[in-house]
C-alpha cells in the first residue's frame, strides 16, 4: 500500500511537471503570435505601392511613403556588409584553419564577448570614431556601426561551417600538391560557402533590424539621399520616431514600416536561399 502510494505520487509529479514544461513552451510562443498578428493586421492598412515609391509627406499631411528609408536601410546594410563580411569570413577562416594556439582561443573568446556588447555602445563608438572627426552625422558612420555588429555572427558561422568540411577533402587537396592557401580557398571555402552565406545573411538581417546604433550615427533624413557622407533615413529609425509621434497617421505608418522591415528581412533570406540553392546544383 505504502509503496503503491509512492509509486503513484512519483508518476503524478512527473506527469504534472512534464505538462508544465509544455505550458511554458506554449507561453513562450504567445507573444510571438501577438506581435506578428498586430504587425500584420495594423501594418497592412497602409501597405500600398506608394509606401515603397513615394517620399514622406510633411507633418500633418496624410499619406506618403518611405522610399528613402527603404533605400537607406539597404545602403546602410550594404556598407555594413562591406566591412563585416570580409573581416568575419577571413577571421573565421583563420580561426578554423590555423587554430590551436592561445591567440586563436583569445580571438574566439573576444568575438563571443563582442556579440554580447549592446548595439548602442557600438553606436557610441562609431560616433566618437567617425561622426566627431567628420563633424557631422553620416550614413558611413551608421554603416560602420552595423559592420562591427555583423562581425561576431559571420566569424563564428564561418568557423563552424569550415569545421564541418570533412578532413579528407583537405588531405586530398594537399595530396595533389595544391598549396594550402589554394586548398582553403578553392576547396574548403567553396564546400562551406552555403553555410557561410547563411551566416552572412543572418548578420545582414540582424543589422537591418538595428536601431540603437543608427540614432546618432546615420541619424535619419526626411529627404532622398544616397550620399554616404550625409545623414540617411532607415526603416528602423522611422519606426522609432513615428511610434513616439502624437500623430495617428504616423503611428499607422510605423506599423507599416515594421511590416515592410519584416518583409525585407524575409526577402533577403529568400534571395540568399535561391542563390545558394542554384549554385549548389551546378556543382
Amino acid at each position: 500500500m505504502n509503496s503503491k502510494y509512492f509509486y503513484y505520487k512519483r508518476k503524478l509529479t512527473s506527469s504534472i511537471m512534464m505538462l508544465l514544461t509544455f505550458v511554458a513552451a506554449l507561453a513562450a510562443i504567445i507573444p510571438l503570435v501577438f506581435i506578428f498578428y498586430y504587425t500584420i493586421s495594423k501594418g497592412v492598412t497602409y501597405l500600398n505601392l506608394d509606401f515603397f515609391i513615394a517620399m514622406p509627406k510633411p507633418v500633418g499631411e496624410p499619406g506618403g511613403g518611405m522610399a528613402n528609408a527603404i533605400v537607406g536601410t539597404l545602403i546602410l546594410i550594404g556598407i555594413g556588409g562591406a566591412i563585416g563580411i570580409p573581416v568575419g569570413v577571413m577571421t573565421g577562416t583563420y580561426l578554423s584553419e590555423f587554430g590551436n594556439n592561445k591567440f586563436v582561443f583569445l580571438v574566439r573568446f573576444l568575438t563571443d564577448v563582442l556579440s554580447g556588447i549592446p548595439s548602442i555602445v557600438v553606436g557610441v563608438v562609431a560616433y566618437t570614431m567617425v561622426v566627431l572627426p567628420m563633424k557631422h552625422f553620416s550614413a558611413l558612420a551608421g554603416g560602420i556601426a552595423l559592420g562591427i555588429l555583423m562581425i561576431p555572427t559571420i566569424t563564428r558561422t564561418t568557423e563552424e561551417m569550415i569545421k564541418l568540411v570533412p578532413h579528407s577533402l583537405r588531405e586530398a587537396g594537399l595530396a595533389l600538391g595544391i598549396p594550402k592557401w589554394k586548398t582553403t580557398l578553392a576547396i574548403i571555402l567553396r564546400t562551406a560557402w552555403k553555410g557561410i552565406a547563411t551566416g552572412v545573411l543572418l548578420g545582414l538581417s540582424r543589422a537591418a533590424g538595428e536601431t540603437a546604433p543608427l540614432l546618432f550615427t546615420a541619424l535619419g533624413n526626411r529627404f532622398w539621399s544616397t550620399n554616404i557622407g550625409q545623414p540617411i533615413a532607415s526603416l528602423t529609425v522611422y519606426i522609432y520616431d513615428y511610434a513616439k509621434s502624437p500623430f495617428e497617421d504616423w503611428n499607422q505608418q510605423a506599423w507599416t514600416a515594421a511590416l515592410v522591415l519584416i518583409l525585407l528581412i524575409s526577402v533577403l533570406s529568400l534571395v540568399f536561399r535561391i542563390i545558394t540553392r542554384s549554385k549548389y546544383k551546378t556543382n
Binding site: P31, L32, Y38, I239, A243, A254, W255
Partner: peptide, 16 residues
C-alpha cells in the same frame, strides 16, 4: 522570437 528587431517589440509595447 529572438530575431524580431527590438524596435518592433517597442512598437508593440507602446500600442498593445
Amino acid at each position: 522570437l529572438a530575431g524580431i528587431p527590438s524596435v518592433i517589440y517597442g512598437l508593440w509595447g507602446i500600442f498593445v
